[in-house]
């Protein structure tokens, strides 16, 4: 079981992502933005950070990095792909996920532990959670407000593609408190909060984020069986 973690120039959370993958029991494979192939991974994570300094728009330049060609191709063929924070922004810019992330409504960078509700437990990344489970993971972003037009939002809700929702307090003005969404197949998921920072109670608020990586491993195993 090999799960890749992509490093772009300006990525920050690749090391924690690798640690989370290993803690879940999979082999972590470091991928570089200039790579032309995915080194035989079974799933891939785009970690958080500030790829290319967030210049132009967050994720807008990373979306055209060489490694994104095989990522997009593999995603279209059904490989589980997860985008966390800046990785979510990259997936939206690449058109693999709907909507866009814009500046937080109060213009402040928000860094805190955040309760989320797992709204969909049928995606490749969330089967380990009980329906409606509430998890506590860090959120840390300045451009985390999820935006899409009303029709798109209604479609996402109707198709069960809102995967995570902020509970209690929406940190950034996201439409309908949306923290994460999936594509139509449920194999591509993006979220602004950071499950990879919540996999070890020693260094994170909880280990609630571990289920994301365990879910993907289950999914890959089932696909192989």
């Amino acid at each position: 079981m090999r799960i890749g973690a992509v490093t772009f120039p300006g990525t920050l959370d690749d090391v924690d992502t690798v640690r989370a993958i290993e803690r879940a029991g999979a082999e972590a494979v470091a991928l570089w933005h200039g790579d032309a192939d995915l080194r035989g991974v079974d799933a891939v994570v785009l970690p958080g950070g500030f790829s290319y300094g967030d210049y132009l728009r967050a994720g807008a330049i990373a979306r055209f990095a060489p490694v994104m060609e095989p990522v997009i191709e593999a995603a279209r063929k059904g490989m589980p792909v997860l985008g966390i924070c800046n990785g979510f922004q990259i997936l939206c810019e690449a058109g693999l996920l709907p909507g866009a992330l814009v500046r937080n409504h109060k213009l402040r960078f928000v860094c805190r532990d955040q309760w989320l509700r797992v709204e969909s437990t049928t995606t490749a990344w969330t089967t380990r959670y009980e329906p409606g489970a509430e998890i506590l993971v860090p959120v840390k972003s300045g451009e985390g407000a999820y935006m899409a037009d009303e029709r798109e939002l209604d479609a996402l809700e109707g198709e069960g593609r809102v995967v995570f929702r902020y509970v209690e307090d929406n940190p950034n003005g996201s439409r309908r408190d949306i923290a994460g969404v999936s594509d139509g197949s449920g194999r591509i998921v993006g979220l602004m909060p950071h499950p990879e920072h919540a996999t070890d109670p020693l260094t994170g608020p909880t280990d609630d984020g571990l289920g994301i990586f365990l879910s993907a491993m289950d999914n890959v195993k089932q696909g192989a069986a």
């Binding site: 814009v102 500046r103 409504h105 213009l107 407000a145 935006m147 037009d149 003005g173």
Partner: peptide, 14 residues
Amino acid sequence: MPKPEILDPQGQAV
């Protein structure tokens, strides 16, 4: 320019 229906917090701050 941000679309009219998209919240523009930077413009609002100005």
